[in-house]
Amino acid sequence: MASARLLDVSRLASRAGQVATGVDRVELAYLQALTADGGTPVFGLCRTALGFVILDRLGLLALGQCFATRDFPKPDLLSRLNRRLTPAAKLGQSLVRRHAIGRGRRHGLRRLLRRRVPQGFTYINVGHSNLTAPVCRAVRAQPGARIAVLIHDTIPLDWPDLQRDGTVGQFAAKLRVAQTFADLLICTSAACEADVTRHLSRTGRIPPIVTAHLGLDLPRPAPEDIPPGLMPLRPYFVILGTIEPRKNHALLLDIWDDWGPGAPELLICGHRGWNNADVFARLDAGVPHVKEVAGLSDGAVAALLRGATGLLFPSLAEGFGLPPLEAAALGTPVLCADLPACRELLGNWAVYADTQDRYLWENEIKRLLQSSEAVSRPAFTPPVWSTHFQTVLAKC
């Protein structure tokens, strides 16, 4: 058992005040779990524009509270003067500096860790923002220190043509750092573990791996948060997630384009992403019975999912896949791409369809539309965070 745990919160500090992504939520879950564990001291490490900052448990709690309320203090003078920082990073870095128990310059991390964190700690990196060889070497220089890295998926390497510019090289570099320095890799599914093993086996060392399904933080449905005029008055479907090529919105737009009169509503819930100009142009031009909405609260999304005829999830690749789990936990039928991670997590609860077979997707959507009122579905039990952390923290 580690003498202490050091959670890297560099990603969270760069995302202050923004709607949390899936990776953000995982890092927040780790923050909450580690600060709630009274048996093992916990610290936070954050890379800022001026160097590194160490937080204690109280500092981590303050960071978590600000994310929960989305209420961050105004940026300090150092952040306001730095024109290269995003507004979110100005908020987050100001906050961690305010609660720091130690600060050090970029080349002083070894000394900072030696002064502020007990020997024999485990460094945990979930968000990858600070996953670099210099940081890992500084951790390795501490007596008894260990490194644990969570790998969400290997999608940038498996689907390079669908990534933002520079993403593939950045991810490959981070995976090499994990391969070189990690004492433990944490995978979110057996499918993810198989992918990680496949890639690492080509280049040498495979660190010990533990697989632990992520937990599901299902928010309370809040119909009052749904913007006026958004909730359809007739049957509707939802697709949830960033509008990026991997999520395969184009398949559904093709179906709705050809549907004609009597089509149900399709709600596209998510921000616009990258490399998707054709889909953005189609949405801007308008597709019959399709609405696009971004920035909804978690409660509003849950309310829309609960009232939907079904969640449509034609994603081309997933390491875990939260939207279908959220829908299933609310009792909403799921039509899902036939992916190993989704089958692993949903079993026979979802209906699976090959994303290359548009005709099959059309038929399954129409079947859900016809049978939505008549079918009584069994309750779905989603994975929980307590099981994840019971598995992971026993090893780090």
Rank of each mutant, 00 (worst) to 15 (best):
D195S: 09
M231R: 04
T242I: 14
P207N: 14
A212E: 02
M231F: 06
A194I: 06
I243E: 11
C192R: 02
L240G: 04
V238L: 03
L157R: 06
I226W: 03
T167S: 07
G204D: 06
L266F: 11
D257Q: 11
L216P: 07
P235N: 09
L185P: 02
A191C: 00
L200F: 05
P235E: 06
T203G: 07
P221M: 04
Q179H: 11
R220L: 00
Q179T: 11
L157A: 05
G260E: 01
P261T: 03
D254C: 06
L162S: 10
A178C: 09
L230V: 07
P207Y: 14
P160C: 09
P227T: 04
L214E: 09
Q179C: 11
G260K: 01
L175C: 15
L253R: 02
L230G: 03
L266S: 13
R246F: 07
K174G: 05
R164C: 12
C192A: 05
A172F: 10
Q179A: 11
G241F: 15
V196R: 06
G229K: 06
V238A: 03
A194V: 08
L157S: 06
Q163H: 14
L184V: 12
T211S: 07
A263P: 08
P208F: 07
L240V: 04
D254I: 06
I209H: 14
L175Y: 15
P221R: 03
D217F: 10
L184P: 12
